[in-house]
């Protein structure tokens, strides 16, 4: 479980750092609503990623693909309910931009791709 905690810590901190930086950029551009939406979306993206890691040991207790898939369905529905919260908030409150929230929900995925594809490549190139 220690590796999972370390992975979560790494990507979640990268995602939050990126979200705060983007919030400042949007603030300077006068697009506060998008910035707030992005920050809110990122926060829930991070929560989703943490919950996913917490539920993981339960997945691994399942012996077959079908049992694992059934458990994954329950887990996804639970996490989708969490991810729906910022979307609904942004549709109800006009000071939070919907598109900002949508992009924010993918920040953890973007952080993973950025870290593994770009940062890692740069490390390999430096070593070479």
């Amino acid at each position: 479980m220690e590796e999972i905690k370390q992975t979560q810590k790494k990507y979640c901190s990268q995602a939050m750092f990126f979200a705060i930086a983007m919030f400042i950029v949007f603030l300077l551009l006068g697009e506060k609503a998008i910035g707030k939406g992005f920050l809110l979306g990122t926060l829930f993206s991070v929560i989703n990623f943490v919950v996913m890691g917490q539920l993981m040991p339960l997945y691994l207790g399942k012996k077959t693909h079908s049992k694992a898939s059934a458990f994954a369905l329950v887990s996804i529905l639970l996490r989708f309910a969490i991810l729906a919260v910022p979307l609904v908030i942004s549709l109800k409150i006009s000071s939070i931009h919907f598109i900002g929230v949508v992009i924010g929900l993918f920040t953890v995925q973007l952080a993973i791709l950025f870290d593994q594809i770009i940062i890692n490549r740069l490390h390999i190139m430096r070593k070479a």
């Binding site: 993981m56 997945y59 693909h65 079908s66 694992a68 898939s69 059934a70 994954a72 369905l73 996804i76």
Partner: peptide, 8 residues
């Protein structure tokens, strides 16, 4: 869910 279940 099927995709994640397969991975798991």
């Amino acid at each position: 869910a099927v995709g994640e279940g397969y991975t798991a």
